[in-house]
Design a protein around this nucleic acid. Sequence first.
DNA 1: TGGGAAACGAGAGCACCGCTCTCGTTTCAT
DNA 2: ATGAAACGAGAGCGGTGCTCTCGTTTCCCA
Lengths: 263, 263
Amino acid sequence: MSMQQWFDKSKSGAHFCDMCSRILDSPRPMRHNEAMNDSKPLGVRARARAELLADVGRVARSQLAEVGAADLSVRAIARELGLASSALYRYYPSRDALLTQLIIESYDSLGEHVERAEDAIDPADLAGRYAAICHAVRSWALDHRHEYALIYGSPVPGYAAPADTIDPATRVTRRFVALISGAKPTRSTRQLAPPLTEQLDHVAQLAGHDVDLNLLAIGVGLWAQIYGMVSFELFGTFTNIFDDADAIFDHQVQLGIAALGLD
Amino acid sequence: MSMQQWFDKSKSGAHFCDMCSRILDSPRPMRHNEAMNDSKPLGVRARARAELLADVGRVARSQLAEVGAADLSVRAIARELGLASSALYRYYPSRDALLTQLIIESYDSLGEHVERAEDAIDPADLAGRYAAICHAVRSWALDHRHEYALIYGSPVPGYAAPADTIDPATRVTRRFVALISGAKPTRSTRQLAPPLTEQLDHVAQLAGHDVDLNLLAIGVGLWAQIYGMVSFELFGTFTNIFDDADAIFDHQVQLGIAALGLD
DNA sequence: TGGGAAACGAGAGCACCGCTCTCGTTTCAT
DNA sequence: ATGAAACGAGAGCGGTGCTCTCGTTTCCCA
């Protein structure tokens, strides 16, 4: 059965949990109760579905944290829930759809962690906010290695990120651009190639900020650097070189602050 | 059977192909011909073994390039070679060992590509050498997406990189450090935390070069940045933002040259 | 020049995987 | 009340990595 066919069939059932609606929602007619209005009846079946959906998510999340995405098994989840593996296919069309939910949740988890960390800093303290964001990314990654690998590591083979993932994926990026937009325009203006100017303009536009494009270009480099360092640390490239990466990471953060002129 | 047991058993057979010796070699007594001296007899069996070993490697490499590490299948390799899958276990103790060979070969392929690119530049042209290295890394990655994912993406689940992989892995790094050692010491001396100084000293020592540690720290950051950008491009993070990453990548290379004072 | 040990390839089999299909049951909307 | 839809279980398909056995071939050395 194709994904779309599955959508059409499944759409006839009620769904209310975040993930379920995110996966299933798309503009098409609804049937019976649907409960987009939060109101009451909520039959036995709907309640059970919501609960099971949540349970599956919970177990999947715990399995992901334990064994990683590659070893995440639909059958194991079913086993832990005391269900036949085939039963899970009433809720997810495929293992990939399950992975998609986990990807979205991971992006959101990282995004919230970063936002919380930055919000704890005095907004006028740009250097402090930059450091907070960087360290929040790293600390989240260290605490959620498999989730980090899922969203920033090599993509799973047959998998193509569906549209639903792009918005949560930009949560951190948006904060990053917002921060840069608050910095004072750089003094050294290096020439930007025309296509690059266009791309950077697009980024600024997406984030809804006026930004000095030279500064933004530097920011993109630093953004890649942060994830590069975290990936090196988590994926083993730093092994035997920077087994404790605290110092080198913090040093790069300080260099980044200087490069952006935040100090 | 444990890996070590397999080693011990297998050691009794002759082996001469690069990979085979790399996997099997470790200090322990040899039995019968072994042919560490290249000389002649080379029985029928030994010749056949070497040939099949090479064939397996060839097919594995082609499968890796086609479908990626996660979908690389011992059975499929055996099928393509017209063998029973069990026969392959006379040559590799496990799928992981096969992957290990591919990891080593990938590191070497990247290393050679980078070295060739840098060697084509006038040694006195530090900026040119830096650019050559960076662009070589990226172009190799774009041409060998699955190999790149194998060595720089999320590690495969149960897999722990064996010692044999660390030397080939540092091929690019060594060139990088050598280049930096040729740059003039940086003017701005930012304070380095004591543990960081120690780690950077160790890096310089491994690479066998005298290096200004402040410059080396900047180099580590740029090194992470390069791989961060390549990973973003290959793994989809840049999708819809820098679909063509030529311009942004080259811009970062120019910024890196300035940061290292190579211009 | 044997003869025993080792290496070899094939095949069956085990436990797992994602996924599909059918079938009897339960819930729901009309 | 009834028919349609949703549900869970179970069997089953084709795939995986890996093991074990068995008959054959090659090799080393006595």
